[in-house]
């Protein structure tokens, strides 16, 4: 069952420069993907590719000067774009929950962990009083926090980074949402802690048949915790498909460059990748946005590439995606 369906999403920012002229940054340029129940979808890309913006849009959290000139975001069959804040608040934290990168700043420093979990349920009217406390404690146990009864009384500052991230996952899950959006959930955590947190997240998503959208720049997270992946570049999804398919047969030159930039591949293949600057979002060229950096750019690339199916659900927005790499 499809939980989230983003279709041809465009987002732009209008700002005024010092010369008072209006400048429009085209931050998202036609993003389409879906997240179904029971699957973890990874959204990868580099700084400025539009990953976090996509997440914010899906949560209905975009605020001016960002605007959506075009596109559709359907959650559980219902169009999100254009909903009032009141209607969105009924969905956010209830049916759809977000886990952000900096756990310690996302927790209220003046409230005990247990009280925050209880409040989360009271706000959404899912449980109250003793029932809410029981549920809160059960959630802490579910995210593998040792001694949950005692942790209920803990203050946020008493938690380590890994524990705080677990509490945040518990907060996101306490109202039994259908979809979880995790924006760089383990960036900034230590390697050993990152693995523990990701294991927890994956196990819960599987056990409860949730859908999850994991936004990350870390190909390792995608490779081992996601079933499907969408690769973003300059506000577009350039390639998407099952993780193993995409990794074994990357069909967009940018995906190949990303994979070949990992140290392990450099050790095997040598220095093959020349990085470059992403295109100017204020002045996007016509056609393929990766053209300037692409080793196989041709005249055809002056026209915007369509998504070409490589196999099954694997596709890439490249004129040459059909050819064998």
């Amino acid at each position: 069952m499809t939980l989230l369906a983003v279709q041809d999403l465009h987002v732009e920012f209008a700002t005024r420069g010092l010369d008072n002229r209006l400048r429009v940054a085209q931050a998202l340029n036609g993003v389409s993907f879906t997240v179904a129940a029971g699957e973890v979808v990874g959204l990868v890309g580099e700084t400025g590719a539009g990953k976090s913006l996509t997440a914010l849009a899906a949560m209905g959290l975009l605020r001016p000067p960002a605007r959506i000139p075009h596109g559709s975001i359907r959650f559980e069959g219902r169009e999100i774009i254009g909903l009032s804040d009141r209607e969105l608040e009924k969905i956010r934290g209830r049916r759809m929950a977000m886990i952000v990168q900096s756990p310690l700043t996302s927790l209220d420093p003046l409230k005990r962990i247990g009280d925050q979990l209880v409040r989360m349920q009271r706000v959404h009217d899912t449980a109250h009083g003793a029932a809410a406390r029981t549920k809160a404690e059960a959630m802490l146990a579910a995210v593998r926090i040792p001694d949950p009864a005692r942790r209920m009384r803990a203050w946020p500052h008493e938690l380590s980074g890994g524990m705080a991230q677990r509490v945040l996952i518990a907060m996101a899950l306490v109202n039994d949402p259908a979809l979880i959006i995790a924006d760089e959930p383990t960036t900034g955590l230590d390697v050993t802690v990152q693995a523990q947190v990701l294991d927890t997240l994956r196990d819960i998503v599987a056990a409860r048949n949730l859908g999850a959208l994991v936004i990350t720049h870390d190909l390792g997270v995608v490779a081992h915790y996601c079933q499907r992946v969408a690769v973003m570049f300059a506000g577009r999804i350039v390639e998407d498909g099952p993780v193993r398919e995409v990794f074994s047969r990357p069909s967009h030159p940018y995906t190949r460059a990303l994979i070949d930039s990992t140290p392990g591949r450099i050790a095997q293949l040598g220095w093959t990748v020349t990085g470059g600057t992403p295109p100017d979002l204020y002045d996007l060229p016509q056609g393929c946005l990766y053209r300037d950096r692409c080793p196989r750019a041709a005249t055809a690339c002056l026209a915007a590439p369509p998504r070409i199916a490589v196999s099954g659900t694997h596709g890439a927005a490249c004129h040459f995606a059909g050819e064998a790499a």
Binding site: S160, G161, G162, M163, D190, V191, T192, V193, Q194, A195, Q196, L198, D199, D218, L219, G220, V221, V222, A223, H224, V243, R244, F247, S248, I259, T262, G264
Partner: peptide
């Protein structure tokens, strides 16, 4: 063992050492 190689075909061999530094 906690490291995640950016390759889905490399199996993880996780040692379950718990706790944090």
């Amino acid at each position: 063992s906690a490291h995640l190689p950016p390759d889905p075909f490399v199996a993880l061999r996780r040692h379950r050492v718990q706790g944090e530094i």
